[in-house]
């Protein structure tokens, strides 16, 4: 069809960098030109694909490319991991959502958990460029899941990595490190991105300490422009849409428990879709990542 998106989203590179993590550099010149820290895109892998939101880790406006990190959790990200350089994604729209409110706050602690470290990277960079003292805390379950450590270490005034199992950096949780920091120095802002329980724990701690906190939510969404309302979340007792009102919100006001439940809506369907895709892969002789 000749009215289809004429923009080709050619893949420059796609590598599985960790057992369940991929890194893709893909052409999206409009996004690369305009994107700001904190914004996201939605991609569709092929004509059968879902619209999936992903945060933007980096961009190159000259080459017209963006860098995406993805966790292989469902059908679309599994398909994404099978894409090769030279092939194209069906669709990319963005940048979507409000950019991070970057200004000079003073001391900013950037807390990233797991794949949340990817969207944290541009925010940390922007906070540093705005003249803040930046402390990065990166937390993962195990060393083999850690991404962007060197990049973030080159930004922060101090950088702490921790793992649940002690296989890299300090053994412990990001909240343990954060507690130590706020006990000894003044912190003006905390930015926390990661799994919902992590963002909830960080927000709980900073609320008691009276420190302003941003969290970035990754809700289930369809259009990403406010039209479907699927990404609604309760913030300060009001219904907000993650796509147009967020994705960043005041962590002290977010109802994390109801968000966490909503994220599980399609658990059964996701398993069914994933199994169906793996079955197709076996028939086609593609080696699916288990």
């Amino acid at each position: 069809m000749n009215y289809r998106d004429k923009m080709m989203h050619r893949i420059h590179s796609n590598e599985i960098i960790k057992p369940t993590l991929g890194r893709m550099v893909v052409e999206a010149p409009y996004v690369a030109k305009y994107r700001k820290a904190g914004q996201f895109i939605m991609f569709i892998i092929d004509e059968f694909g879902e619209r999936i939101p992903l945060t933007i880790a980096d961009s190159d406006s000259e080459k017209g490319t963006i860098t995406l990190f993805y966790q292989i959790v469902g059908t679309s990200t599994m398909k994404l991991s099978h894409m090769k350089a030279g092939e194209s994604l069906f669709s990319i729209v963005g940048p979507l959502g409000h950019p991070t409110e970057v200004e000079k706050y003073g001391t900013v602690v950037c807390v990233g958990g797991g794949i949340g470290i990817a969207p944290l990277f541009p925010i940390s960079k922007a906070m540093k460029a705005a003249g803040n003292k930046v402390i990065n805390i990166l937390g993962v379950r195990s060393a083999n899941l850690l991404i962007l450590e060197d990049e973030l270490n080159s930004i922060g005034d101090s950088n702490i990595t921790c793992t649940d199992d002690g296989s890299k950096g300090r053994k412990g949780y990001v909240t343990d490190i954060l507690k130590e920091i706020i006990d000894i120095e003044r912190v003006d802002l905390v930015v926390a991105i990661g799994p919902v329980p992590m963002m909830k724990a960080v927000s709980h701690m900073t609320k008691d300490a009276g420190i302003k906190t941003f969290v970035s939510l990754n809700s289930v969404m369809i259009d990403g422009t406010g039209m479907c309302g699927g990404c609604r979340v309760t913030v300060g007792g009001e219904t907000k849409f993650t796509c147009v009102d967020g994705p960043e919100f005041d962590g002290h006001l977010v109802d994390f428990d109801s968000l966490n439940l909503r994220l599980k809506t399609y658990h059964a369907e996701e398993t069914q879709s994933y199994d169906s895709y793996k079955h197709k892969c076996r028939l086609d002789g593609v080696n699916a990542h288990e």
Partner: peptide, 29 residues
């Protein structure tokens, strides 16, 4: 905000635009 509560826009968009009625041939549930 319970699981299973849709706006009509979301429900119809999933089914019409994203072809959820052909799930799992199409990925959107």
């Amino acid at each position: 905000n319970l699981q299973g509560v849709y706006s009509a826009n979301e429900y119809l968009t999933r089914v019409n635009l994203m072809k959820a009625y052909k799930f799992p041939e199409y990925d959107t549930p």
